[in-house]
Simulated scan of single mutants.
Amino acid sequence: QVAGTGNLGAIAHYFLTNGDSPAGFGTAFHVAADQLRFPSAPWLGRSELAGLDGALLGSGLAALVVPILSMAGSLWLAVRMRVLAALRLQLVVIATALGGLIATARVTGPLFDWVVRWWWVIASLWWLSIVWVLWSVLSQRITTQSMQRIATGLLAVVATVVTLAATGPITSATSSTPPPSPSTGIVLDGFLQPTLDALQGSGPLLVVTTGSVRGDYGDALRLQLERAGIQVVAESNMISHLGPQRSESSRTPVGTLWIVSADQITQFKADQSMKFLGGWDPLAQDQRDQFFIDQSLLQEQLIAAGRVDLAEALTNGSGGVDTQAKTLDGVDPTLVDRVEAMRRKGDPVAVFLGPARTS
């Protein structure tokens, strides 16, 4: 299990070998702060904070103060009042939250909301365990049956309000079909219409996303292509998602539509076989030019400091640069802040039409 190919071996190999740079504990703490905050919490219906590229931004660490103090206070109360059942739940929840923190820190690539959706469960259990302690202590203090009934009624009212607050935004959104996220719509607006205009009357086309491009960009573009009468071909690993009628055995692609991002845009533009159709960039052209200069300089500093993984993270969408690079010898912290501020605005996205390829 450990030295072989079992689960424990895979976990050990993941933690002990160098690979893509993970998000890091700095990012993990910010995400935890956003998830555990109360009452304005994602699990209670608030939209999670994300950049234009869809990656979670998290909240300030100050948002952790209330959850941690509440848990610490209820732990002390549970021990003092010997509320053992609630105490056991709290210990399990704390251990789970620590595991969640480690798991978040080890995420590679953009930290999208669906990657850490399980934080909703941890956050709800976090506050549920605190409420259980308070309720258990209150039950010990109430001696008359009438007061116990009143307290139970109040608890039911509070539980109903919390449930409605958590489910209200979801149920109210069932009548509409918005984009997968607000940022997706912003990016699509940048390249969708020019792409559809250029491809009118063509197809079938194989749509491929590469680099740090989010999968929902590809899904959204495939949908709009089909609506415009342009047939889409599914890669082999997408047949279960898009349907066997779109497999290459049913449709032969006449070209490949590439959705690329960041540095790969420059590479695709230099390829004579690729035709640029449209794109989106959160930065103005002069800002993008300066960003490339700063990014190149920072990469040189990171490589000189022996952190090739962080240098690669600047172009592949991975995290860890903001939390690990500043303390390295020879790396300018101001340059790190400047590059990361631009990266958080989102990666540019572009669409290219290339020759047909097999999936």
Rank of each mutant, 00 (worst) to 15 (best):
G278N: 09
Q299A: 13
E248F: 07
K326R: 14
D113C: 07
V207H: 02
I265V: 14
N18D: 01
L283C: 05
V233I: 06
S175C: 11
L138R: 13
L302G: 02
L61D: 05
P194L: 10
A23C: 11
T323C: 12
G229Y: 02
V157S: 11
L328N: 02
I150E: 05
R288A: 13
G153E: 00
D347E: 15
G26E: 01
S172L: 14
D271W: 08
T17C: 03
Q267S: 10
A173Y: 00
G211F: 06
R214L: 08
L335A: 07
A304W: 05
A356C: 07
A284T: 13
D309S: 03
A166C: 13
S273L: 12
P182R: 10
Q287R: 13
V161T: 04
Q272D: 12
W118G: 07
V131T: 12
V213S: 11
A105E: 01
L128K: 05
D347G: 09
D322P: 00
P179G: 04
Q231G: 01
Q267A: 15
P244V: 15
F38C: 10
S139M: 10
L64C: 12
P22H: 02
S74N: 09
R307E: 08
T195V: 09
R117M: 11
L154A: 12
V158N: 06
T327Y: 04
S240A: 14
H30A: 15
F268W: 07
A165P: 01
L101I: 13
A305L: 04
R82M: 08
S59M: 04
L225Q: 07
T174W: 15
W135E: 11
R88K: 14
F352Y: 07
N7M: 13
I186N: 03
A304C: 05
S124L: 10
T334Q: 07
Q145I: 11
L314G: 00
T5N: 06
S146F: 10
L164D: 12
N18L: 05
D189W: 04
G45C: 08
A165S: 15
V187C: 05
A62T: 14
F291Y: 11
R251Y: 11
I230Q: 02
D286M: 02
G211V: 08
V260K: 00
A12F: 11
Q200L: 10
S183G: 11
I150R: 12
